[in-house]
Each structure stands twice: as structure tokens, then as C-alpha cells.
Amino acid sequence: MKKLRVAVVGLGVGTSHLEAYARIPELFEVAAICDLDAAKVAAATVRFGVARHTSRLADLLADDELDVIDLCTPPNSHRALIEQSLAAGLHVICEKPLVGSLAEFDAVERAEEAASGMLFPVFQYRFGNGLQKLKFLQARGFATKALVTTIETHWRRDEDYYAVAWRGKWATEKGGCCLTHASHAHDILSYVNGPVKRVYARLATRVNDIEVEDCAAIAAELEDGSAATLSVTLGAAEESSRLCFVFADMTVSSASPNPYRPGLEPWHFKGRTPKIDAAIRRALEEYAPSLESFEGQFARIHASITAGAAKPVTLADARASLELITAIYHSADTGLPVTLPIARDNPAYDNWTPSRGGFPKAVDHV
């Protein structure tokens, strides 16, 4: 089995990526790390035993022995770094948000089409065995008719979090709780139930004195006719992530105690009748657990690069996520429901930043 040589760029969430690579050393070798912060580089060098480090992406792009660039930098840098890395002939793994607009997405998609390497968006929440059990059941004919779905992302971010200069600003973070914190959970909505058709959103900044939103209430209609509600806040006293899918034949809900890994077990599966319930239990006896979270996605990426397996998360998946966030921001900005897909002549296609520069503010620090 070929071991891929990867360089991790950005040592914020990149540290979690390094932890994942360390758990699958038979698949990846971390050949280098890159960050502008010398203290972060020094700490990561010691912790993960990576000898090579740099503060310049150009140093990595000139390395003929690298296979993959893993981008974990602030959102406003993603497009340029993706395009540079693909042009250098490397495969690219990139954290969310992949880019900062639908126009930028279309640009990097064209860049991948012209390159020898592949671009892999990161949506690690998909690869938890609780959520994968639901996908397993769907593949076997259960949970085919969705009725309603609720997704809650209730986290806490205080002033110290926003002391990092690029956070909380439209120009650099590109969005708030809907983009940076809840996009993984919201991705699960389409992953399970298919495309979103219409969105109505209300956003506000009520927790911190920042430009971007930190509270949201969103109603969505899906193409299959089902309805969903999405609730987000960064002011929760106790952090939690909860997903509940109500289908005609069963109800499924997450119960992971880890708010940052809601796809992990336990998940609860309840059939509408005793007969369905028994059939669900029998089917789940055949489920084989697999690697989860970042290492689960990275292992699947390894298979895509080395064995031609399908991408674990496609660019179409990433576009759906960006289209949903575009619709959320445009709806909250205009006060109107937004129908997807977002056309190129829609003003939000090039820039989803609200026309008034933000959403209603009522910050009252405790």
C-alpha cells in the first residue's frame, strides 16, 4: 500500500488533522508543516515529530516528493492556495468553507478540471458510525420518505475566541455561526435527505460584538417535499449538537455527547411499528464499523488517490453546502425566502456578505 506524503498548512484546526494522520500512519506520512506562527510550528514539531517546517507555501509547492497539500488556513486564503497547489500538480485537501462564494467555487472547480491532482473538501462529520448506520439503513430500503428534520448547533464562543484577528469579520472569516460552526451539521441534512429547494432565514448578532452572525433560525424546504428547521447559537451555556430525522417508517436521532462529533454513536433508531423496529435491529446487526471523523475521511481520500475509489466528499457536495449558506445569507439580508439553485445573476452569487454589512445586533455580555 502506497503511503502518501502530506504537508499540513495552518496549525489551528490543522492540529486536529495532524492528530488524525498520526492515527493512520500506514496511509499518510506528514512530511512538513507550515504556519506563520513560529510558536505553533515549534509546538507541532515536537508533538508530532515533523522535522521539516516552513512559513511559505512556495517551499512546499517546489517539493517533488509531496503528494498532498492539506489546507487549514483562514477562509479568505483558500481560493488562491487551492489554485496554486493544484497548478503545482498536487492533490489538495481543504477545510471548510472551501471558498468564499459560489463564483469562487466555480473558479476552483475549473482549476481542478485542468489539473492532474484532485480537490477534496473536508466534511468529517459524515464519517461517524452513528450517521453511517442511517446511511446503511437507507441503502437497504429504510428511511426513504422524509417528513421533518431538526438540526441544532448550540455552541459557545466568547471574546477570547474572537481575539484571533481574522475571526468575526466578513472579509476574512467570510461568515459567522452558519458558515464556520454549523456548516458541517447542515451538510448532513442534504447528505441524508437530498437537495434543499427553498430557505427562509433569520440571523442576528446577539452574543459577541462581532461583524458576523452568531444566532440563527432557519426553515428549509427540500426537493423531496420534506421540511427542516436549523437552529444555531454561539451563546449556549452547555454545548450540544442534535440531529433528528423523522421518516415515514422510522425516527432517527443523534445522541453523541461530543458537540463536535455528532455523527459518532450512539444514535437512536426507532421503527414506527414493532415489525419495522425488529427489521431495523436485524439490519443493523450486519453493519460493520469503519474509521470515523477526520481519519475516516482521510482514509477514504487515500483510497481515492491510490486506488481510484470514489471521492468521499465530492465538489458537488461542497457546492451544495455553499449554495445553502448563500441562500441563508441572502434570505436574511432581503427578508424573503430564497429558492435554490442560486443563479449567476443573483447578487449573492459573487458575494454573500449582507448589503447592510451585518445582521441585527443586540449584544449583552453576561
Rank of each mutant, 00 (worst) to 15 (best):
L203I: 07
A237N: 11
A204N: 03
M250S: 04
A43F: 01
L134V: 05
L322K: 01
T326L: 07
I218E: 00
A143H: 03
L36Q: 10
V246G: 01
T149Q: 11
A343E: 13
C94M: 08
A103G: 02
E152A: 00
P266G: 09
R198A: 06
D187Y: 10
A278G: 12
A278S: 15
L230A: 00
E95S: 08
T144A: 12
S355Y: 01
V164I: 15
K135R: 15
L315C: 05
E95I: 06
E292H: 05
A163V: 05
L203K: 01
A163G: 01
S231F: 06
V99I: 12
E19C: 06
I218M: 00
E239C: 04
L222Y: 01
Y287K: 12
R157V: 00
S253W: 05
L57H: 00
S226D: 08
H365M: 14
A62Y: 02
F245S: 06
I276M: 15
A228F: 02
L315A: 04
A139V: 05
V92N: 03
L315W: 07
I93P: 07
H268E: 15
A288F: 11
P274K: 14
L234P: 00
K174P: 08
A32H: 01
N351V: 06
R356D: 13
E221N: 13
N351K: 10
D106I: 04
Q297A: 06
D333W: 01
S241V: 08
L4P: 10
P289Y: 06
L179M: 14
M1V: 10
P262W: 04
G49N: 04
A318I: 07
E104I: 11
T73R: 06
G194R: 08
A307Q: 15
V41E: 08
R23T: 10
C34A: 00
D224N: 15
L179W: 03
N129K: 07
L119S: 09
N76W: 14
V246S: 10
F142P: 06
P354A: 03
G10P: 03
K145C: 14
R300T: 09
T144M: 13
P25Y: 02
Q124H: 11
V363L: 08
E173N: 10
L315I: 01
G296S: 10
L81M: 15
V199E: 05
R206M: 10
S16T: 07
V99T: 09
V9Y: 02
A171E: 15
S16N: 14
D63T: 06
V50F: 05
